[in-house]
Amino acid sequence: MSATTTSVPDREARRDNRRDFVAKNFGVISISVVFVVLFAYFSLASDAFLTTTNLVNVLRQVAPTVIVAVGMTFVITTGQIDLSVGSIVGLSAAALGLFAESGNPVVALLGTLAIALAIGLASGMITAFGKVQSFIVTLAALTAVRGVALLITDGYSTPITSDFLLPLGQGSLAGIYTPTWLAVIAVVTGWYVFNHTRFGRYVTAVGSNDESLRRAGVDIRRIQVAVLGLTGVLAGLAGVITAARLGSGSSNSGTAFELEVITAVVLGGTSLMGGRGSILGSAIGALTLGVINNGLVLSKVDVYWVPITQGLILIVAIFLNSKLFGRIVGTRA
């Protein structure tokens, strides 16, 4: 651009570029390292871990977490949070069972997803237009939606026998289960939307400086509604997959699922303060949690250690997220 450019700014620019590369990818890089280390450890610690059957199973187990983590990355990047996804999984699983029992399975599927979407959009509108923090709105939804799920089923599970619905959880293609394929589609689509569309750019901008985006003439409330609608419908899909895999719609599905999803997203380097997120990081974060759960069980550790470990990982992840991560990519201004 300028004819008088000297070598000093060039060197500065290269250093800035390196720093920006690390800043943009630090989360993905660090979680990848953790993933590889844990994977190697469990491969050595248990004979059953590094087998095709087990790994294909792990990929199926983590699919709902991966799918919802994609949506949650959008929400957290805007600086919001969605605590209601676990309850939406429960309601969707229950609703799918009840709908399928009494009618057309296609309608049951679409109806279930529509309900999940509606709950997400409602939370989004209360957050955006009612100016209530999403933390509070979705905390309320967490309780209320689970209550509805229990109410409509009386707490019982409903068996699902539909040949249309069961493959969503149990079917497979090329040796990989359907839920895993759905998760792959969610990650690829999510990555594309997040990094290469206006919507994705505005999600980052809302979390970074919403006033800036508002002054640029963008209606930020629509972004807030959209991201919570997204987690809603993806949680609905996760509920459908869970119910189809078990062959039964249970209102107790997805208990504490929100914590697992948020842990995965935070592990993946998405900032809880908003403005910085990584879809790929969230996917690897979810895989890491899946490998830990599976590896602990296979290592014959007492099963009660699994939630304890998860809680500890969440603390460490949040600590690293806010302290270490913030320092390495810390901004000057």
Binding site: T204, A205, S208, S212, R215, A333
Partner: peptide, 16 residues
């Protein structure tokens, strides 16, 4: 009113 987490070009084109 700039977005710190968006690059220079992204800030210049924000909203358009």
């Amino acid at each position: 009113a700039l977005c710190n987490d968006v690059d220079v070009a992204g800030n210049l084109f924000l909203g358009r």
